[in-house]
Amino acid sequence: MMLPPATLRLRVVENGRRKIALWLPIFLLWPPLLLLIVASLPLILVLALAFWWHPMTRKVVKSIVPVFGAICSLRGFTIDIEDEEDEVFIKIT
């Protein structure tokens, strides 16, 4: 089962000094976001049906699942760039 990312770690070190050090619990965002989507689903469905004639609407509807898949597959994505004094670290888990 594919789950969206749970945490995001971001660390930026500049000239040996830590500029940014974030640990973002993005899993806290998903329940309210889910509720928001469920609440607005009837409106989305009505709008989608009303504008179904437009090719863009079909593209957008078709892209919902792949976009969600792309977000979920970001888990494990890591970027770590460092030299003697600077560092950029991004990790999505």
Binding site: S73, L74, R75, G76, F77, T78, D80, I81, E82, D83
Partner: peptide
Amino acid sequence: ENVNIRVPIQL
């Protein structure tokens, strides 16, 4: 300078 990038194949 060291670069270490890990990309999930699922992506």
